[in-house]
């Protein structure tokens, strides 16, 4: 702000105080709302995970603080198998694989859209936005129909003599559902990064006798990296905590962390353990997001 004549330091300080008061006042309703309906619930989850115990009737009683609920994640179950760790591991590699496949599918598409004329570009972009905004549950359900026992995909694979067993309720079905569900989340940030790229740099590389591949490796790819990171985070986070997709397309052997947490509340009635798992899940997400912001991401 330009200093004007006649503005004393006292006046400026008063103006600053007034500004601070107004800023707080304007934000206050949302602030209070989020403290009551978000921060306090978050604290409650933590309190339940540390102070809560499940009594034999499935109710939660409170006692001295302990990390038992967290320890349970690393302990073998009654049958001696490390069920929870298996589920966490499965969620992790499935979400990483989903992210990689989405990147491989989305990058060439985003590049293609970004290099079209503005008119074609807008049409292609809207065609990505429609699935992006469409109901996630419905889009996942479509695959239940496609991959089901008498579904079209099964009909095709058995006609080709590949396999008669439907893909539904397998890990592959969950993977397809995750990729299908989150692919638009990858395309849009990638497109944004490629679209605002300075193409004269690529031309300069080509003028200096770089091959097409070299120019891509040394110029295009590094310049589009913010989009790659943003898209990867936007796919990885919801995929790791996915609940709807494994519930609809997966089976008893493909339980993911999201479904397992829900089960702790709706079936096992073990609120402390479910709370501990939710807290761990949230911490992983926060970690991933901090990495994202550290690497210079801005669009969320």
């Amino acid at each position: 702000m330009a200093t004007r004549t006649g503005v004393t330091p006292e006046l400026e300080a008063a103006a600053e105080r007034a500004q601070a008061r107004r800023g707080l006042l304007v934000s206050l309703p949302a602030y209070v709302y989020l403290v009551v309906f978000f921060a306090i619930p978050l604290v409650i989850v933590f309190v339940v995970s540390v102070f809560g115990r499940r009594n034999p009737r499935g109710a939660t009683v409170y006692g001295a603080p302990s990390l038992d609920a967290y320890r349970k994640i690393f302990e073998p179950g009654p049958d001696g198998s490390y069920l929870v760790l298996e589920i966490v591991w499965r969620s992790l590699w499935l979400s990483v694989l989903t992210t990689v496949i989405c990147l491989l599918l989305a990058y060439p598409l985003a590049y293609y859209i970004g290099t079209r004329s503005p008119r074609v570009r807008n049409v292609l972009l809207v065609l990505v936005m429609i699935p992006f905004w469409s109901n996630f549950l419905v889009r996942t359900y479509a695959w239940r129909v496609l991959l089901g026992r008498s579904g079209p995909v099964t009909a095709v694979t058995s006609a080709l003599g590949l396999t008669d067993t439907p893909m539904i309720f397998t890990v592959n079905a969950v993977l397809i559902g995750l990729v299908y569900g989150f692919l638009p989340f990858m395309v849009l940030p990638l497109y944004a990064a490629i679209e605002r790229m300075d193409w004269s740099l690529v031309e300069a590389a080509r003028d200096l006798y770089a091959s097409g591949w070299q120019a891509f490796r040394k110029v295009t790819w590094p310049l589009s990296r913010p989009g790659v990171i943003a898209g990867s985070i936007l796919v990885f986070i919801p995929a790791f905590g996915a609940y709807v997709t494994p519930e609809i397309l997966g089976g008893s052997k493909t339980t993911l962390l999201g479904s397992y947490i829900v089960r702790q509340f709706l079936q096992a009635r073990d609120a402390p353990f479910g709370s501990a798992l939710s807290f761990v899940l949230m911490s992983v997400m926060l970690g991933a997001t901090i990495v994202y912001f550290r690497t210079g991401g801005k669009t969320l």
Binding site: L42, I237, P238, G241, G258, I261, V262, S278, F279
Partner: peptide, 8 residues
């Protein structure tokens, strides 16, 4: 994650 918020 949705699931954490649901639990909260």
């Amino acid at each position: 994650p949705d699931v954490t918020m649901a639990v909260m």
